[in-house]
């Protein structure tokens, strides 16, 4: 369904020093810096897949989404999506995709959401019967009915995001690109958005590519992640695999009594300790979680404890270190 082969993209960015002198100089002579936004990016995504596209800010996520949605042409490489080359034949191609930018709206700010939907119906030339059916389905599954007739500027962010995703599905696209769909949402809205994405994926065999910084999005929606850093694909495969590879420690936090310095643990490092609370970092190759707890409970009365797996950011940092970038 989606195949990218050796996609490269370099941006030319104007450089300017600090201060008035440099600003003046820039009026006459510009220095440019070249930024390699995409470096030999290749992957394949099949029909009906949900893929998490992750990486830090500036890694090339949005650039890839732009290339795949046909609003940016790469310097070299091939991109074949449903037998289209996205940046050629734009008007035919974009009928097949839906795109949601979490930070930007595609709806009209001052008019009721329903009016925006109606205009989209006309833009995409959706037949009336099909439109009514799709809109009913979306209204129900996304719970839009209570704010469908409210102007966009008066709805909450969570409601807005639900409306945005619904808007991108009105024309029944085959592929949905979501650029940070849960950014800024509260827990309830995040859950609603995730559930919805799952539901449409299952019902319509919709292919979904989403970028996110929230590892819970990934965990809830998919096991396949493509990880990009500085324009390069670092990993393409299951999230579990990455985790496993860099999952070398656990963070153990205990609350205990009496108030005294906790004992040292072999194979673990005491990260912090204050009064009745201590945080250990367990090297899982040297000590297991259960033996650490066993050891500690010999001398301490443990009142409460949590065990945390490393956050996704650290896993990614580990991958960077491995790839030397």
């Amino acid at each position: 369904m989606i195949t990218l082969k050796n996609i490269n993209k370099t941006f030319k960015v104007a450089q300017r020093g600090k201060g008035a002198g440099a600003a003046f100089k820039a009026l006459f002579k510009r220095d440019y810096k070249y930024i390699r936004a995409l470096n030999d990016v290749s992957f394949h995504i099949g029909e009906g897949e949900i893929v998490g596209y992750i990486g830090p800010n500036g890694a090339g996520k949005s650039t890839t989404i732009k290339v795949m949605s046909g609003i940016l042409s790469p310097d070299s490489g091939q991109c074949d999506i449903m037998d289209f080359t996205p940046w050629k034949n734009r008007r035919e191609y974009v009928k097949n995709i839906g795109v949601v930018f979490g930070q930007r709206t595609q709806l009209w700010w001052d008019v009721p959401i329903a009016d925006s939907f109606d205009l989209l119906r006309d833009i995409y030339k959706i037949p009336a019967a099909e439109y009514a059916r799709t809109l009913d389905m979306l209204t129900e599954t996304m719970g839009l009915s209570e704010f469908l007739n409210t102007p966009l500027r008066q709805v909450s962010l969570g409601q807005r995001m639900r409306a945005e995703i619904a808007a991108s599905l009105l024309h029944s696209p085959k592929i949905l690109f979501l650029d940070e769909p849960t950014i800024g949402l509260d827990a309830v809205s995040k859950l609603a958005v995730r559930q919805f994405i799952k539901a449409v994926n299952a019902e319509r065999k919709l292919t979904v590519i989403l970028t996110t910084h929230d590892q819970n999005d990934i965990e809830a929606l998919t096991d396949r992640v493509i990880l990009i850093g500085r324009g390069k694909i670092l990993h393409d495969g299951s999230m579990q695999n990455i985790k496993h590879k860099f999952d070398t420690y656990r963070t153990l936090t205990i609350t205990f009594s009496p108030r005294e310095a906790p004992a040292a643990l072999p194979g673990a490092e005491l990260v912090s300790w204050s009064g009745e609370r201590a945080v250990y970092r367990l090297d899982t190759s040297k000590i297991t979680v259960s033996s650490a707890i066993g050891e500690l409970s010999k001398t301490l009365n443990i009142l409460d404890m949590t065990v945390e797996t490393p956050p996704i950011e650290e896993i990614i940092a580990g991958l960077y270190a491995e790839h030397g970038i």
Binding site: K66, S69, G70, I71, R90, R91, E92, V94, K95, I97, V99, F101, R104, Q106, I123, Y124
Partner: peptide
């Protein structure tokens, strides 16, 4: 504001 991206994503001139 990136509005033109949105325009490019619509199947119209």
């Amino acid at each position: 504001q990136g509005t033109f991206d949105r325009i490019m994503l619509r199947p119209r001139s």
